[in-house]
Write a protein that binds this DNA or RNA. Structure first.
Lengths: 230, 230
DNA sequence: TAGTGGTCTAGACCACTCA
DNA sequence: GAGTGGTCTAGACCACTAT
């Protein structure tokens, strides 16, 4: 039967779906049968099928069997970029500038995001990221000092808060929201752009278990694109 | 040794990383050792480690061993939404309106995207997607007629082009670009919005192998958010 | 060249869920 | 209750790559 690697088998299965042999929503044979057809062990077929399932091409249920998904909902994987790398991979020189740094009572929406007790203080940071000296993105960040007290001693003028947090609190969970944001007066000035341009904007909040670490808003300069492949 | 499922083991490994026992960039023991430590088969440990690798938490190399990633680059999975569902899951009524439909020579950038021979014609469609009767998103799409000739017979006033294509050409590949776009006069009018607002914008091109199917631009109404979880 | 991850196999048992 | 996927095991061989 030729190649019997799970990758090859997966590809062959995809072709059977794309060709229309297995229409949307139809049931496909069970693991055992398919394994026999392709001359491989059931474990190998299982791996191939699980791959398809994780991509959303098929839906698997015990007893119910495997079906071709009715919604070919492909998922895009977006690599949440580190700004420094983003700039440097495009061949430009990265630098950043700490514009504001203060410890103060956070506004109510921030308190809610970080699950702060009302009235408690947090660290506010405003950082300008630059590419070849020109404004690339501006970051407003609130850090929960109860979760990360050490950050008060960090040399944030040298290392960006982003990088410091990444090294000190690795592998947190988080959520991300992408929006488009009209430039206000201040942003237009920073980016040296027309006030009628728009900024691609990212909100992110990160936590570990019950510890809410930080929440931030990142405005990219007009023209910024986030690309991904399905 | 308690639980020995690959999920549990994976979780325990994550904890060892998060606790700092295995710092960023450090080498972690080999599969064989770890399997012995946790009292499971190497295959099970392999599966746990591959899971971590696919999430970007560790980096694995033959002979080189496994290392904790220096950049905890977590990837976000975005489910590319089907507009109808998007509207309906938010409890609103979906409808759409075909505003323009013509077969004509595509502009050069579209010809390039679809790999059309210069001067060849393509189908242009402009669709307005509505939620509870109000403009939700506007879609401008070019379809490669050589790749999908059947679309000329499709009842596009009943079924949206998006849905027709999905059912007729399932599981294509594609690329996606997200940007922010300032509203122009026409868009502001359609969305009944201030001309200084911004639209979250998606460009998508899809193909199967060498067949380039369609390319489109989707402008969402101001205030739209794309959310994901890390 | 040797060490490490990548993968396949054959067999077994479990867990969910549909009828 | 029975069928299907989910998973574990133990052993084997292969393929890449750092040394």
């Amino acid at each position: 039967m030729g190649a019997t690697s799970h990758t090859d088998i997966r590809q062959k299965l995809i072709e059977r779906i794309q060709s229309g042999e297995w229409p949307l929503g139809s049931r496909i044979p069970g693991e055992t049968d398919l394994a026999q057809d392709y001359g491989c062990a059931r474990a190998t077929m299982n791996r191939a099928l699980q791959g398809l399932a994780s991509e959303g091409l098929i839906i698997r249920k015990r007893k119910g069997g495997s079906h071709v998904a009715t919604h070919p909902v492909r998922q895009a994987r977006i690599t949440i970029p580190i700004i420094r790398e983003q700039v440097e991979t495009s061949g430009q020189a990265y630098s950043h500038e700490l514009i504001a740094r203060k410890v103060t009572v956070a506004p109510p929406d921030i308190q809610a995001s970080l699950r702060l007790e009302s009235g408690s203080e947090a660290l506010f940071l405003k950082t300008l990221h630059k590419a070849d000296g020109a404004a690339f993105a501006i970051e407003r960040r609130w850090v929960n000092l109860q979760a990360v007290p050490d950050i008060m001693d960090a040399p944030l003028d040298t290392v960006s808060a982003n990088e410091w947090l990444v090294k000190s609190v690795p592998f947190s969970s988080g959520d991300v929201i992408f929006t488009a944001h009209a430039l206000d007066h201040a942003l237009a000035h920073i980016f040296d752009a027309n006030e009628r341009d728009a900024s691609f904007t990212v909100h992110r909040t990160t936590w570990i278990g019950e510890r809410f670490i930080t929440t931030m808003t990142l405005h990219y300069r007009p023209g910024y694109e986030l690309q991904t492949i399905l």
